[in-house]
Design a protein around this nucleic acid. Structure first.
Lengths: 251, 251
DNA sequence: CCAAGTTGTCTAGTAGAATAGACAAGTGTG
DNA sequence: CACACTTGTCTATTCTACTAGACAACTTGG
């Protein structure tokens, strides 16, 4: 007769939280260990079977946890070899002509931008001022998640004048790039006018999109881009996962 | 043809976190709202069906969330009437002869103490000093969770000299009280020598035992109790859910 | 190349989370 | 009292988390 396994941790490992999946608890536990420095960058984690034994769970559960850590950008896995810690940050260089895809490509990664949502809305006082419009003028708002090698790096809100860029969302869906979207409207060149950087904590929505735990630190980057003539073109509010990116500002 | 419901939140409510049950997310959301003061003490929460509609979930799911809030001591439910916010704190008076059961009974609640674990261990330098022993002398360590009306109030670690109170755990299991356990050894009277209070955040283990979210504040109360002769008897390290207790120190 | 060790994938079964609907039991109001 | 509203409990169904075991695909070191 087999001893029935009562679903859950077998005794001494109490990282179990009510209402939270086992794999999530294990993933969070490893995130802590990695961020604390208990597992150094590049180090190999124990084999899945070993981890499973240590936590007293099935290997599949550990695999789910590792997949989560992979999605958070903390580890990568090599078949037949093992799972390795990856805490090096992407160097995101901010200059007058920063283009996400170029930054990521230069670092040898695969860039991806996905439109998560969009809407027409009246400009707030802040946004109107940045774009040289009147408060209440309609603007297009885009929510874009950017990833490098499938790991989410930033989520950015972009506002454009609805007057000229009414269908920006539709165009972005096809071109998958702000630069190419603007090109579609005949804007071939633009540059950053100013950038403001601050820090905050991820709220639930951003944490979900960035695949972060809530309350991990994020970098908030606000900027205004203008045409070559200096005409306001778009303004953005990007949130970067501080654990995955180092911002470099060119002076 | 019915529109199938794809399990999960229907669109606009993004409090969903990967790997966390729906009811848990809703419970955490309400905890926030209550602690922020959005729902005042004594106020009635919306009806379950109303909440369910607002979150776009089934009423059963809301009921689970409410049960969780009840277990956390934030809310109580009256059949046919509604669910009410309860953020008043238990006044825990600390004096020379504080007894948990007396404090709770005086406040008109039902006291309960449960032994969660125990072991023999060598005394750390700190513990040995408090008990007037030598570092490394064996001590009995008890982990006790105390609750009022089924709501966990504190978890306390108690150390006694193993020399004299070797079977303390067994006795406590029967008597369910430190006072009665000591009486079993012939100690009929004891008093508090000193108390030290500090604040911290709940770790995963304590959070689980206190039914708190991790990283909610706790009060840490360390004390040494002595016999009438002034002989060290036991020392404790209690962690109180700061949201449920106000400590009053007699001067 | 071989063998040991590691990750990837598949099938299958059990328990729990969430859904849906219905009705009983209780409260409060006119 | 009668009625509207609220919580409590039950049944049934679907989907997912977790467990279990087996085997393929791959890497590494001798």
């Amino acid at each position: 007769m087999l001893t029935k396994t009562p679903r859950g941790l077998s005794g001494k490992n109490h990282l179990l939280e009510r209402g939270v999946m086992l794999w999530r608890c294990i993933a969070d536990d490893f995130e802590q260990l990695i961020l604390i420095g208990k597992h150094e960058n590049g180090a190999r984690l124990p084999a899945e079977s070993e981890i499973a034994a240590k936590y007293g769970v099935n290997r599949h559960t550990v695999r789910r946890a590792m997949a989560e850590l992979g999605a958070r950008g903390l580890v990568y896995t090599e078949r037949g070899s093992g799972t390795y810690v990856k805490t090096d940050k992407l160097d995101y260089r901010i200059g007058e002509r920063t283009r996400f895809s170029e930054v990521v490509a230069a670092a040898g990664h695969e860039a991806e931008g996905r439109l998560q949502g969009h809407r027409l809305e009246p400009a707030s006082e802040e946004i109107a001022q940045r774009l040289g419009l009147n408060t209440g003028d309609m603007v297009v708002r885009l929510e874009i998640v950017r990833a490098a090698d499938r790991v989410p790096i930033s989520v950015a809100t972009t506002w454009l004048s609805a007057d000229r860029y009414n269908d920006a969302a539709k165009v972005f869906r096809q071109t998958r790039s702000i630069t190419r979207t603007l090109a579609h409207y005949g804007v071939t060149s633009y540059r950053r006018k100013w950038t403001r950087i601050s820090a905050a904590f991820a709220d639930a929505v951003d944490a979900g999109r960035l695949r972060l735990s809530v309350h991990r630190p994020i970098l908030v980057v606000e900027s205004v881009n203008v045409t070559e003539n200096g005409e306001p073109l778009l303004t953005t509010r990007g949130r970067f996962a501080a654990d995955r990116v180092a911002l470099t500002v060119e002076s």
